[in-house]
Each structure stands twice: as structure tokens, then as C-alpha cells.
Simulated scan of single mutants.
Amino acid sequence: MRGRLRLLALIAVSTVLAACGTSAPPQAAEGHRVDNCGRTQVFAEPPQRVVSLNQHATEILVALGLGDRLVGTAYPDDTQPPESVAAEFDRVPQLAEKYPSVETILEAEPDLVVGGYSSAFRESDGRGRESLEDMGIATLLLSESCVEGAATSGMELLLSDITMFGEVLGLREAARELNADIANRVRAVEERLRDKAPVDVFVYDSGENAPMTLGGRGVGADVLQRAGARNIFADVDETFADVSWEEAAARQPEAVILLDYLGAPVDPKRDFLRGHPLMSGTPAVRDGRFHRMQLVELTEGIRFPDAVEDLAEALHGV
């Protein structure tokens, strides 16, 4: 009953604010200021009730030890979170299989909503950042969804966002420890690969008429580079993009990475490539050199060092 009453009150406040053409700040005028993806948030004190949309964002918050303050998540990509966070992750209430309605979000009574992808805050669905902030709810978005160009590496984005969450949530020491672990593990892999020549790889996400693949931007591109892979579509200035089978085959990949996520298992993708008139003749498919990766491993999150380690082992045996 308390949640329903608050929901009705928040909707009423939002209607009044929209009619008056004004916006209420998400927090008090003084406090910790964060400039995030084009929006400024001010936190008078650490948020106590956080809803996190998208699995990779939720895993970061769990790894930081947010605990019972994480009151809801949504849109899982994988049924098996990393072992280090699995127990705590499973305790977080799942609000929806995909994105929840704004009414469902409000029933969780959050003072902060975190998005992993920009689609988490789609205005047409009523979850826009401005709309939520008008109702007194702060918002934060992982930086991969809004960074321009490729000047900042994926790992740098990840470490910066972990620092931001540590400061906002009052978990600075946990953020420092998590960042140090990620950086140290990745540096160790890079040292082992020092004398190894990179392997040309094609990342196959989905699509039969035209393949969706990983481009040269974002965290996934950085995972590949640090693991000793050379993405054959690194020249595409997007995070993910549709390309052509003719171009994919012409670039002669030596290995194929098959992306696995809920609703898109890898076995049909492997079979499709083996039967494809162009791809079947590439070194990767001809030699059966396939490597399975979870989509969430190539997005901004705590699986970054796991992904680098596993891919380096698959491609180079180190």
C-alpha cells in the first residue's frame, strides 16, 4: 500500500511539474556533483534505494558491495553471473525480464536508477532521465553509451565509472580495490602477450542476410585488443554494426567469436557459418576455430578481465 500511494503521489507531482514547465533537481543543491552523459546529478548523501537496469550495470554495483540498497534489477543477458557476485546478484529482486514500466520502477521507491545502455532511459517508454529526475529520482548511465569517438579505451571508461559509483554510493575503498584488481589482471595478460602476433578475428553477433558484428569502438573492442586479437572490422567507427558477408569473407578471419546471450545461442550460429557459401572458405571456419563469449563480457562491466584472460588463452594459449 505504501508503494502504491507513493507511486500515485509521484505521478501527480510529475504531471504538475510538466504543466508548469519546471524541473525539480534530483537531490539537494549542495553535495557531490556528477557530470554524467550530458546530465548533472547532485547527491546530498549516498543513495539508499537503487534500481539497476541491464545486467552488466547491476554486476558492477553488486561487486562494489551495495547489498540491500540495490532494490531491483531488470533485463538479464545471462543466467549465470560471475561466481564472485552470483550469490548477491541472485538476491536482487528482478523487476522485469526486459525493461520495466515506469510504474514498476516507482513501486520499488528508488532514489537512484542506473542504466547500462542508453535504451534503459528511453523517453518514449516513460523512463527518460529527465522524466525520472522530475520525480525526484537521480539517474546515472554507464559511459560506454555516450562516449564520443575512440579516444578513451574501454578499460579506462570502466575504471572511471567504478570510481564514480564509489564516490556517489559512499563505497570509495571498494571501488579502489575493484579497479586495482581489474587493472592488475589485464596488465598481467598483456605482459604474457608481449611477443605474440595478434590473431585476426570476426565477431558474429547475429543476422543471416547481413551479419551484425563488433566495430572499433567501446569496451568490446578494447577486450579484443588487450587479449591479442585484431578485429577485422576495427575500422568501423561504431560499437556494433551491420556489415556484409562479402566483406567479412574477404578479410579472411583466422578465428570467429560467437556471441552468446539469452535468445541467441551459439550452436545455430556456428552451423550457419559452416554452411555459408562465403564464410565456410575462410581460415577460421575451415579450421573450426570458434570461441564462445557472452555478450555481457564485451560490454562495460566487471567481466572485462575475465574476458581478456579467457580470449588470450583461446587464441594464444597463455
Results as ranks from 00 to 15, higher is better:
residue 129 R to I: 09
residue 6 R to C: 12
residue 97 E to I: 09
residue 136 G to H: 02
residue 156 E to Q: 07
residue 151 A to N: 03
residue 216 G to I: 03
residue 193 L to W: 11
residue 200 D to E: 05
residue 256 V to H: 02
residue 52 S to K: 10
residue 111 D to R: 08
residue 236 V to S: 03
residue 168 V to H: 05
residue 10 L to G: 13
residue 231 N to Y: 14
residue 231 N to L: 11
residue 79 T to P: 15
residue 242 D to C: 01
residue 53 L to M: 12
residue 78 D to W: 11
residue 232 I to C: 01
residue 31 G to M: 12
residue 166 G to W: 13
residue 134 D to A: 15
residue 43 F to R: 00
residue 254 E to K: 04
residue 96 A to W: 09
residue 28 A to W: 09
residue 216 G to E: 08
residue 9 A to Q: 12
residue 29 A to G: 14
residue 170 G to V: 07
residue 56 H to E: 06
residue 249 A to I: 09
residue 203 V to P: 03
residue 5 L to E: 15
residue 186 V to N: 05
residue 104 T to A: 15
residue 274 R to M: 06
residue 210 A to H: 07
residue 96 A to E: 00
residue 59 E to H: 06
residue 84 S to V: 02
residue 248 A to H: 08
residue 294 Q to L: 10
residue 24 A to P: 14
residue 135 M to R: 15
residue 306 D to Y: 13
residue 47 P to V: 01
residue 12 A to T: 06
residue 158 L to E: 02
residue 211 P to S: 03
residue 176 R to W: 09
residue 104 T to Q: 14
residue 301 G to A: 13
residue 34 V to T: 05
residue 66 L to I: 12
residue 286 R to A: 01
residue 127 R to L: 15
residue 240 F to P: 03
residue 105 I to K: 04
residue 232 I to V: 11
residue 8 L to P: 10
residue 310 D to L: 05
residue 170 G to R: 10
residue 65 G to I: 09
residue 315 L to M: 09
residue 120 A to L: 03
residue 108 A to P: 00
residue 227 A to H: 10
residue 161 D to Q: 07
residue 65 G to Q: 13
residue 82 P to C: 06
residue 49 R to I: 04
residue 176 R to H: 11
residue 149 G to C: 07
residue 290 F to P: 01
residue 291 H to A: 09
residue 236 V to D: 03
residue 197 A to S: 13
residue 152 T to Y: 05
residue 260 D to M: 15
residue 24 A to V: 15
residue 311 L to Y: 07
residue 81 P to I: 10
residue 188 A to E: 10
residue 177 E to M: 13
residue 82 P to K: 09
residue 295 L to M: 11
residue 294 Q to R: 14
residue 110 P to I: 06
residue 239 T to P: 00
residue 8 L to F: 14
residue 191 E to K: 10
residue 261 Y to V: 10
residue 124 S to W: 07
residue 91 R to A: 09
residue 172 R to I: 00
residue 106 L to Y: 04
residue 18 A to G: 00
residue 101 S to Y: 10
residue 34 V to F: 06
residue 249 A to R: 10
residue 34 V to R: 02
residue 104 T to N: 11
residue 133 E to S: 15
residue 67 G to P: 14
residue 64 L to R: 13
residue 219 V to A: 07
residue 213 T to Q: 02
residue 30 E to C: 05
residue 204 Y to D: 00
